[in-house]
């Protein structure tokens, strides 16, 4: 099994290895077993189909975290021309976790910002495993305000387990940095397309995720809390991540059904990590469609719709007006929306 294969892919990987072995054996000995190979290959296809056709939320989380998936810079370089990365928050330092800059998307200049993960250990450490510090959010905001100034649409590529929980991040105001982005992204007078490409971890994802079109890749997740952390809080057991992933409704399909995101971008069979170029091309189409749609909106409508989108998040009911609050048995609320 290769390091890049996921645990639930094991039966398939083993079967494929067996087929490969049989083939080699055939070549060495000059015996024809092509019928057997064909049977096994059909079996492998069927097995792959069963595994990938109906992935469980926890399996998707594992795919979303796969280190072979395209990174923010892979997407930008694959989708755009004239990519120029810009650096720094003009205040403290350049956070290598948050990348951003200017590029040309189908002829038009855009600003991109995103959280960047590393492929190998060294780069992962350099990128702080995709977990940004406050200066990363401030760098992104600087670039987004620059986009506002020069009238460029903004593309946000989000793949983070969350904002970094460290002492320095707290000292420099992690909460304040995210909070500021949340307010100021409502005031950007240019279209904002945000894509959850892998992990959409909590406030750290939302801090780059206020937009007019929110897309999610098929196996990405978006959650108020990492499944393992939810399991720790709910059942005092971080190994119950699988159970939490089911309960929390964090898959792209769930969030589309909730109306939290606008569209799900299909991934190549088995996940983006298996065919990065195909994934990048598919996302390019989805981003083009989103930008085309948003460009047609008058600026005032764009801002009003952005407000409206988030103002409507979450349904609620009302408890009966009169009488005491029930001691134990609370009547189910009537839905308003």
């Amino acid at each position: 099994m290769l390091a890049t294969d996921l645990p639930f892919e094991k039966p398939l990987v083993e079967l494929r290895m067996k087929i490969e072995e049989l083939r080699r054996f055939t070549e060495d000995k000059g015996i024809d077993v092509s019928d057997e190979v064909a049977v096994l290959e059909a079996k492998a296809r069927a097995l792959a189909d069963t595994i990938y056709r109906d992935l469980k939320p926890w399996q998707r989380v594992q795919i979303a975290r796969h280190s072979d998936r395209p990174t923010a810079l892979d997407y930008v370089r694959g989708m755009c021309e004239d990519v120029m990365e810009l650096h720094g928050d003009r205040n403290f330092r350049d956070d290598p976790t948050v990348v951003g800059g200017i590029a040309r998307f189908e002829g038009c200049p855009i600003t991109f910002v995103g959280t960047q993960k590393g492929r190998d250990t060294k780069e992962s450490i350099y990128r702080n495993f995709g977990m940004a510090h406050p200066e990363g959010y401030r760098k992104a905001l600087r670039l987004m305000k620059q986009a506002d100034k020069f009238g460029r649409p903004i593309l946000c590529l989000i793949d983070t387990a969350g904002a970094y929980p460290g002492p320095a991040a707290e000292e420099r105001g992690q909460g304040e940095a995210i909070a500021r982005n949340l307010i100021e992204m409502f005031q950007l007078r240019v279209p904002v397309v945000a894509v959850i490409t892998g992990e959409g971890g909590s406030g750290g994802a939302l801090g780059l995720g206020i937009g007019d079109r929110i897309l999610m890749l098929e196996h990405a997740y978006y959650s108020v809390i990492a499944p393992e952390a939810a399991a720790t809080l709910l059942w005092k057991d971080p190994s119950q991540g699988e159970r939490a992933a089911e309960r929390m409704r964090i898959t792209a399909a769930d969030l589309k059904a909730f109306g939290v995101i606008d569209a799900v971008v299909a991934e190549p069979f088995g996940g983006a990590q298996r065919a990065p170029a195909e994934m990048i091309a598919a996302l390019k189409v989805a981003v083009r469609e989103s930008l085309d749609m948003l460009r047609r909106l008058p600026r005032a409508d764009l801002l009003a719709l952005r407000q409206h989108r988030y103002r409507m998040m979450g349904s609620f009911g009302e408890l009966p007006e009169e009488g005491d609050l029930p001691e134990v048995d609370v009547p189910l609320p009537t839905l308003q929306e």
Binding site: L234, M248, R311
Partner: peptide, 23 residues
């Protein structure tokens, strides 16, 4: 912090209140 039992809708309240405060 967030009301975990309301999942993503809890996260979205951060955005909802921020939107009103932006106004």
């Amino acid at each position: 912090g967030a009301r975990m039992q309301e999942g993503i809708f809890s996260l979205m309240q951060m955005a909802k209140v921020s939107g009103v405060l932006a106004r």
